[in-house]
Design a protein around this nucleic acid. Structure first.
Length: 149
DNA sequence: GCCAACGTTGGC
DNA sequence: GCCAACGTTGGC
């Protein structure tokens, strides 16, 4: 089983939305590096649900991958905000997974909190200029983060 | 294949 | 709203 971190803007889709729905597709990823990580995901993997572009940004809880990676059909939906004009039924370049709610943290573990922890220096999230929205988290990093809650 | 221009991300 | 950093596009 692997660990991940996935970013979402809470105005668009938050940990509370996932809690309410129980399960939802994680789609709309339009970055090749992030997509390639999604293609490595397997059912049972867990991820840190990170709220971005909000005040303050931070990890809001934990979700679980519950499907194999599959083609993201929002790419061929002209009404979707994630529509990709270069995608077609024959050629679906993007990947989604289904995710389930696991738990919400009692309080947000903020980006500032994460920066203050030792042992997370290699986490892509904390790299200067990093914009990656899906990234792997090592077992060690995972344990450090959960221990800080 | 290079690289300038442009668009996006996301913290602040 | 600003802007640094990065990814993508497209002319050459």
């Amino acid at each position: 089983m692997a660990y991940w971190l996935m970013k979402s803007e809470p105005d668009t889709f938050s940990i509370s939305d996932l809690e309410r729905l129980g399960q939802a597709p994680w789609d709309g990823v339009r970055n090749y590096q992030a997509r390639n990580f999604m293609r490595e995901m397997q059912p049972g993997d867990e991820f840190l649900f990170y709220h971005s572009s909000c005040q303050p940004p931070g990890v809001a809880g934990i979700g679980r991958v519950v499907s194999e990676p599959y083609p993201d059909r929002t790419a061929i939906d002209p009404d979707s905000p994630y529509h990709d004009p270069k995608a077609s039924i024959e050629r679906l370049p993007w990947t989604a997974v289904d995710v389930a709610f696991q738990r919400k943290f009692p309080h947000l573990l903020t980006l500032a909190d994460l920066r203050s922890l030792n042992g997370l220096e290699a986490l892509a999230l904390l790299q200067r200029g990093s914009r990656l929205s899906v990234m792997p988290v090592t077992t060690q990093q995972w344990q450090i983060i959960l221990a800080a809650m």
